[in-house]
Amino acid sequence: MIEIRSINKSYGKLRALDNICLRFEENKIYGLLGRNGAGKTTMLNIITGRVFADSGEVLMDGNPIPENDQALQQLYLTSEKTLYPENMKVKDALKWSKQFYPEFDIEYAQKIATQFGLDTGKRIKSLSTGYTSIFKLIIALSVNTPYILFDEPVLGLDANNRELFYKLLIEKFSNQPFTAIISTHLIEEVSSVIDHIVIIKDGCIIRDESCEELLSKGYTVSGTAAKIDAYICGKDVLGIDSLGGLKTVYILGNIDADIPEGIEVTKLNLQKLYIQLTNL
């Protein structure tokens, strides 16, 4: 289990992370969601000890992670920025990965590279944005560490390769469970894949619960403006969409037992909920 205890991090005047507390349990898929600049990358970099927090602790099974080789070897983070030498060939990067991570499955890596259509003889710098992402994903899927962190994994991937990535991820997870943390702003793609959702906004955690729990907490009502306005009085309203005399309102809370006539109630889907939660 990875535990984050009251992490703070500022860049100059910008509070990148504000008193973050989180737990990542074993063998679950987490979605770390937030808009661009919300603090997702900073958090992942702090977990993996690439960046230091101003205060707070990051623990793996109770032991601090930073500067702890044993803990660091249990983690793999695919960063948005490529940290592999530009001039290195993909196949050499795979060979080195095997050196660094004894559990790295080089045959599997080569197999999925073929599936993605990545030529392993190429140099890393010559790869397009999409294939640079694919290159990192291939290593992440083959590395076999207990914790795999994906920062914007599908950046620049076309629809087919995105689908292939999620398929491989689930296949891998089903065959040999691990903890995955997927940082993304594309909720529609991960909503069916993740167990647990963490929503981060302006450096603060605004939601940290299982997808099911979160979904059960919100609902949508729609109807004529007058009726809706009367109904939502005193309720925790997340957002309102108006269209002429009709209104759709996203509400956080349990559905009332008796809904007034003329108001239609539907469950909230994750994507709508997320957009409402992270709107400014």
Partner: peptide, 15 residues
């Protein structure tokens, strides 16, 4: 199997 279901629909195995 569960795996086949989850892989072909791209859903979490728990689901």
């Amino acid at each position: 199997s569960i795996t086949e279901f989850s892989v072909s629909f791209k859903i979490n195995p728990a689901t």
